[in-house]
């Protein structure tokens, strides 16, 4: 069953792409298998214009006010925020670990840059994630082709510019195939 794509309202400012907000929260003590991950991830809604984005965003809790093991995901409509999605499986992500207190501002700057097409890497961007954890928060931006070094370098440089991060911030690029390997390594039977 194909869902109807959202369209901009009259007089609204269209975005280059439609996007979907997702939310996930991990139940403490449960293993993060693919199946439970997919069960825990919920769609919030999709939008096609700047105004529709603000209507969602203004009603959402700021990441810095979330508790527990929670994530917001903002992906292009039609791309699931999972490694296994066709758009993601050859891809990777830039990861930035943030000390507590920075997540709300960094997340907003990151998604505004993505929605406004500030990365200038064609069709490469898939989506962005903010992950709220116990001691630190993590933001990441996912792209389609992990092996495309010109693209990943351009995304890194744009991130530095739009996030206005402290100079000692460490940025790490991880391919999704590596993420899958390491997560399997943590399972008791692997």
């Amino acid at each position: 069953s194909k869902k109807k794509m959202v369209v901009p309202g009259a007089g609204e400012h269209p975005l280059q792409y439609n996007y979907t907000f997702w939310y996930s929260r991990r139940t403490p003590g449960r293993p993060a298998s693919t199946q439970s991950y997919e069960q825990n991830i919920k769609q919030i809604g999709s939008f096609a214009s700047v105004e529709q984005f603000w209507r969602f965003y203004s009603h959402m809790i700021r990441p810095g006010d979330l508790t527990g093991h929670s994530d917001f995901h903002l992906f292009k409509e039609g791309i699931k925020p999972m490694w296994e999605d066709d758009a993601n499986k050859m891809g990777g992500k830039w990861i930035i670990r943030l000390r507590k207190g920075l997540a709300s501002r960094c997340w907003e700057n990151l998604i505004l840059a993505m929605l406004g097409e500030q990365f200038m890497v064609g069709e490469e961007i898939c989506g962005a994630v903010v992950s709220v954890r116990f001691q630190e928060d993590i933001i990441s931006i996912w792209n389609k082709t992990a092996s495309d070094q010109a693209t990943t370098a351009r995304i890194r440089d744009t991130l530095r510019r739009v996030l206005n991060l402290p100079p000692n911030t460490i940025m790490e690029y991880k391919t999704h195939t590596d993420s899958i390997k390491y997560s399997l390594g943590r399972l008791p039977w692997a």
């Binding site: 007089g11 400012h13 269209p14």
Partner: peptide
């Protein structure tokens, strides 16, 4: 084709002045 590019300042302005319905 052409790309729809918005800077942060413009996106924040759209938040303050929503389209009249």
């Amino acid at each position: 084709g052409t790309r729809i590019i918005y800077d942060r300042k413009f996106l924040l302005e759209c938040r303050r002045s929503p389209v009249a319905k």
